[in-house]
Write a protein that binds this DNA or RNA. Structure first.
Lengths: 229, 229
DNA sequence: CGTGCAGTTGAGCAAATTCAACGCTTGTGG
DNA sequence: CCACAAGCGTTGAATTTGCTCAACTGCACG
């Protein structure tokens, strides 16, 4: 199931990344540092970007496509920790090793930068250090939200998920889902059947429209917000 | 139900806290800064330490007793984000406002320090800044663990909770619980009845012993670990 | 001695999972 | 070009899990 057609990233950048010192003073949002200092790498659908327990030597930023970070529990179930869309930074670990695995959901391009390089800059430039902290703090808030999501009912979880995706996509009320039902289920702590049934139910109650399985139109956002609890 | 006998912390420290500059260079672990720079305040059982959406002007560290941070959902349910025991830092927010509320579970003493004061030090001292970041990162890992907890079965959640408490108490296989069944339930995303039943079941299967409702002896830690999934 | 609170236990119910079947699309090989 | 297998998604039926409602116990406190 996991990475069925996965292409192991054999071309992982061992070549050092040159920090462009001047870039970090331009006042760009925090995540831009990685893009400015890094190398853009392509990953094919389902390719592993890094694995749990591998050394966390790089930081990543999605340029295009989508990425999932996940953990496989001892009983074989998979819990997806986050979906990363263009602009999102990931692979930002505290210790020396990744605590999650990361895979490309779709073909995608990812900016990669040596953690050392960024840290070296951060050691000298307090503004960069502050931005690194900021990224960690944002991630913390996001995970706290995820905790609140997981104690809701199935309907509420799906509704919250759709609203979240709609907000991030920001192209109005239509969402083009990069991920499969299984991905959604593993993110929401539900089964694919429950996700599917819930979407069908939401469609029947005119809250959404599902022209294709990957495309969802939010018809009645306030109804979803009400479920959002 | 919430804070039934709560004593609003009328004596919240508006008096400025004097930073002792020299303390921060002693190489103590990160959390010590707050203790060194701060003022120790007592809180009575169920007293509110701060509320959601209040300005996050202070950082806190538990000296003695126990603290819960929580959020009340729109449907009235309460989700506890964390239990803080002696040595734990809390109230560490990213924005200007607290995203959770904090209450004393038991009578407790808490070191309090002005956020500004710490931040001012951190701006000059990169080591302090690094420690602040470290605390955020630790919190991030803890919340990520909480996500993994919430997708498990009731048995697994309770078992995991007991093992976590045993590890933190670190007085062997016996746990003295500071919190009520309701607190535990709200932390685990279960009902009190389910928590109670699960504990009874674990006792029947000889995994634990419950001499008093607040005291739990882990008889068969490996059995719990197996449930821990 | 009664009152109130915390915890336990039971019975019935609702929600979500499991197991199974089926439809649709896509890609592959004859 | 068609046949067919594989993957993904949907739907139905049976089952399980945890929740709701309710009663009851033990204990502390006035």
């Amino acid at each position: 199931m996991l990475t069925p057609t996965a292409v192991r990233s054999a071309s992982f950048p061992r070549n050092a990344v040159q920090p462009h010192r001047k870039a970090v003073h331009t006042g760009h949002p925090a995540a831009d540092i990685i893009e400015l200092m890094g190398t853009v790498m392509p990953f094919t659908r389902n390719a592993e970007i890094y694995g749990e327990n591998e050394p966390a030597d790089y930081l990543y930023k999605v340029i295009s496509g989508a990425v999932r970070t996940y953990k496989v529990l001892v009983d074989g179930r998979r819990q997806i920790g986050a979906f990363h869309l263009p602009g999102d930074v990931f692979g930002f670990e505290t210790g020396d090793e990744h605590t999650f695995s990361a895979e490309a959901i779709t073909d995608c391009r990812v900016a990669v930068v040596k953690r050392n390089a960024v840290m070296a800059v951060a050691a000298r430039d307090t503004e960069v250090a502050r931005q690194m902290w900021e990224i960690t703090a944002c991630e913390l808030r996001r995970v706290q939200e995820h905790v609140l999501l997981l104690v809701k009912s199935a309907q509420e979880r799906v509704a919250t998920f759709l609203l979240e995706m709609a907000k991030r996509a920001a192209n109005g009320a239509a969402v083009e889902l990069a991920m499969s039902r299984q991905d959604i289920a593993d993110y929401l702590g539900l089964t694919i059947e429950t996700v599917s049934r819930t979407l069908s139910h939401l469609e029947k109650t005119a809250a959404i429209e599902v022209p294709t399985s990957r495309r969802i139109v939010l018809r009645n956002q306030s109804a979803l917000n009400r479920l959002n609890s």
